[in-house]
């Protein structure tokens, strides 16, 4: 019976000692990706500029000055002035705060509710999951920007309503992604193990599912942050977002478009900031996808 020899006592199994292997700092390693590094640098510079607006200019972004309208860029007005004589540097920097914060708010709201719906649908499945996902399908079937326009038309123009409208477009996008990832993780044996240990569904979702779907959510968020920013500025541009006289990149571009032959600086500077930030965010997204989602990277 004792044909399996006992002399290989289990305690003698050589423990692979990984502590000897050099362990690189994951943050440093991630920056080997040039796109991630470039995107982070671009975004960091823009965020710093916008955050440090009061230090960079003493001008009030909304203060009109009839004596100094349409001033080209100069030492006094580094980005020139607009049709009301407002300092464009101040408007671009303070307006950038609005654009960046509202796009961040959009992805946070969209990610939160979308993730919640995706987790519930993916983990519990069944009838509630079916209903949630069919609603998601319905919302996804609309062209996003059209839906946003329709929602702002119902809610009325304004920054908060614009944020709500674009968030609603993001919710089904997140829900679809998270539902798929959750279904995948839920089928793994460590979830079964947690069930046999007596964990309830919400505990499993919080401790096992969320940490394992988080990389996909992060990658998705960097991708959609850029799109959300474009949509926020688009709403501002057509006058459904931030209301005058407040500055926001889309609104500034709108102010500038009718004078584009007369005062190019009104379009070029906010446009440059907007494009740079979107490019930066997308570069980060590309890099993170490679880092966090090996399936896509290969």
């Amino acid at each position: 019976m004792n044909d399996l020899s006992r002399d290989t006592a289990y305690t003698t199994e050589p423990a692979e000692d990984h502590s000897l292997a050099p362990r690189r700092n994951p943050v440093l390693r991630a920056f080997r990706h040039r796109s991630l590094l470039a995107g982070t640098v671009i975004c960091a510079i823009l965020i710093l500029l916008v955050a440090a607006a009061p230090l960079l200019t003493s001008a009030d972004p909304n203060k009109q000055s009839p004596m100094t309208i349409f001033q080209p860029p100069s030492v006094d007005y580094p980005m020139g002035t607009d049709a009301f004589g407002r300092d464009l540097l101040a408007r671009v920097l303070y307006g950038g705060r609005v654009s960046m914060l509202s796009s961040a708010a959009v992805v946070m709201i969209g990610a939160f509710f979308g993730t919640l719906m995706g987790l519930v649908a993916g983990y519990f499945g069944g009838r509630p999951g079916f209903v949630i996902m069919r609603v998601v399908d319905l919302l996804l079937a609309f062209p996003g920007i059209l839906l946003a326009l329709a929602i702002t038309a119902i809610l009325g123009p304004g920054l908060v309503n614009g944020i709500i409208a674009i968030s609603i477009i993001l919710i089904p996008v997140y829900a679809r992604l998270v539902e798929g990832a959750t279904t995948e993780v839920r089928a793994l044996p460590f979830v079964d193990a947690a069930v046999t240990l007596g964990a309830g569904p919400w505990r499993i979702i919080a401790t096992h599912i969320v940490p394992n779907v988080m990389p996909s959510i992060i990658v998705m968020t960097t991708t959609w942050l850029g799109i959300a920013l474009l949509w926020i500025t688009a709403l501002g541009f057509i006058g459904l977002g931030v209301q005058p006289p407040n500055a926001e990149w889309g609104a500034i571009l709108n102010d500038g478009q009718q004078f584009i032959t007369l005062a190019w600086w009104m379009t070029v500077f906010p446009g440059l900031f907007l494009s740079l930030f979107v490019v930066g965010v997308n570069l980060i997204g590309d890099g993170l996808r490679d880092e966090l989602d090996p399936k896509v990277a290969n």
Partner: peptide
């Protein structure tokens, strides 16, 4: 309790 077949996928990689 249960001991699973695949020792890797039965352990949460993020814990």
């Amino acid at each position: 309790q249960m001991i699973f077949q695949d020792p890797l996928s039965s352990l949460d990689p993020r814990m």
